[in-house]
Each structure stands twice: as C-alpha cells, then as structure tokens.
Design a protein around this nucleic acid. Structure first.
Lengths: 142, 142
DNA sequence: GTATCTGCAAAACATTTGCAATTCT
DNA sequence: AGAATTGCAAATGTTTTGCAGATAC
C-alpha cells in the first residue's frame, strides 16, 4: 500500500505508453493529478509540488499539462471563468460546480451521449457536460 | 420586417423586464447578440459595434455582458481556451465546437437533464453540454 | 554529442479596477 | 442635483514565448 516504487513504476509505464519521456517533473505532475479529486488548476499543482521540487517553474507545469492533454493522458475541464482545470480521467463524465464552496467534483452518473461518435453528421471527439449550482453540503449548512 | 423601431422597442422591453436601464450601448450589444449565431466573444462584439459607436470601450462591453449574465438575460459559454463566449439563449442546449473551422454552433437536440432541478442532492442552476470534433462541412471538404 | 527538457524573464492576452467625465431622470 | 453609466488608463492574473543552461539517451 505504501510502496512508492510500485507507484513510480506505474507512472513511468503510463507515460511511456503515450510516448512521453518519464522525467521526474512529469511523473510528479501526473502523480499529483491522479491522486487529486478536485480537478486542480496549473497553479494548484505548481504550489503543491514546489516544496518537493523547489526549482520547479510554472512554465514546466503549463507545458507538461499541455503535453499530457495532447497525448490523451488527461482531459481539460472548462468550468472556471479564469483558470483551466485538469482531470486525470479522459472518459466523458459530468461535473458539478458549486457556486458557494467553489468545489468542482465528479458526479456519480454516466455522461449521456458519452459514447456517441457523431451528431447530425458532425464527428465527435470529445463530450463535455457539467452542472452549476449549490452542492449538498452547502445546502445542509444553510 | 425592416422596421428598426419595432426592434428597438422589443430590445428596450427585454432590458426593462430584467430591470436593466436601456442605454444605447446596452441595446446595441443585446441586438448584436440576438442576431448572431456564432456565440461571439466580447472582442467580436466590440469590433463589430465600433464602426457604429466609435467611442465604445471594451470595458463597457465586458461590464454589460457581465450585467446581462447576472440578470439572466444571456448565458456564458465556456468552450474556448482563451475567451469567454456569450449566448442570447438561456435555455440549456448543447453546442458543437469544430476543431477545424473553429465554429461554435447550436446542436439541433435537447439538452439531456436540461430540466433537472437536482442531482444526488445537489441543487442545479445551470446545465452545460458540448461536443468537440469536426463539423459536417469540414468533413465534406476533406 | 545531439535531442529533449527545464526554468527564468519577458511578453501576450483577456478581463478587472479606479476614477473622472458624461448622461439620464 | 443625484444616481447610474461610460470609457480611459493602469493593474491583474493566466498562459505563452524565446532562449540559455541542464539533463537524458
């Protein structure tokens, strides 16, 4: 369970499967993404890894995320007005954004049309869906 | 059909219904939005109206769009990486973004869960859905 | 030893803010 | 007059770019 090596091996494998050279920074960024549940922004990733990798730069985080996305390793989530968010899951699934606490989380449901290959003659590569509202926790708190 | 007055009256009414003072700039911006089918960005609106209103500023366009959105007159469309897009239709409906020609257009279909008021106990205010791919026209062109 | 990767500094870009001038009622 | 609206200039915050040094194969 606490085996760091096994984690590193699987990260390395994931990167190599997508023809991405498994550098230390890339493994750390992928590791962070896969452990996070909050669809982090580049800034969140940068700040979290800075203590472990003091020389890390925002540029590297941005370019790495872009690379991961281009290679199909992660998906981009456009929900926030200002910042892009990233998701280690590439399979289509709906998100929920709470206006009160600001959390963005996965919904426990299938994405309708998630496996659709075309609509009205248009070829589909990606399907995105999300709801905006007030989450259960915030509703209960008042 | 070509009556400009009728258009202005209906624009004025639309704004007043939402408790927005119908200034010249606001009417023009709303008019542009309602006539457009391409989910314009603030910049697109600004550039288009500049010839008619040479003193118009980007600030006014941005603040007006934000006001319209807050009052429920238009909806925001997050599809573009960089710029926000605006839509005169507030009823949930799916969009399609073509990676080749860059067009963003409405799909002729209902938004699934578009009338849903809550999911898993979370209260829903907005429902957004869009597909990314290659549109019919671009496919046919090769 | 050559490709790639990293990271700094500066630039680019969309959007916001502070404030003064203008306009509406 | 008083309140709301507009618009300029400057600031903010995110992402990109150019380039030099470091690292990997």
């Amino acid at each position: 369970m606490k085996s760091q090596k096994a984690g590193f091996h699987s990260l390395r494998r994931l990167l190599e499967e997508k023809n991405i050279r498994p550098s230390f920074q890339r493994m750390k960024i992928l590791d962070y993404l896969r452990k996070s549940k909050d669809h982090p922004t580049a800034e969140m990733i940068y700040r979290s890894l800075l203590s472990e990798i003091p020389t890390l730069s925002r540029t590297t985080v941005f370019s790495t995320l872009k690379l991961f996305y281009r290679k199909g390793l992660i998906s981009q989530v456009f929900i926030d007005e200002s910042e892009m968010r990233y998701d280690p899951i590439t399979k289509p699934h709906p998100h929920f954004k709470c206006l009160k606490c600001g959390r963005i989380f996965d919904l426990d449901m299938e994405c309708p049309y998630g496996s659709l290959k075309s609509v009205n003659g248009h070829k589909i590569y990606e399907c995105h869906m999300y709801f905006v509202g007030i989450c259960k926790d915030c509703l209960n708190k008042g």
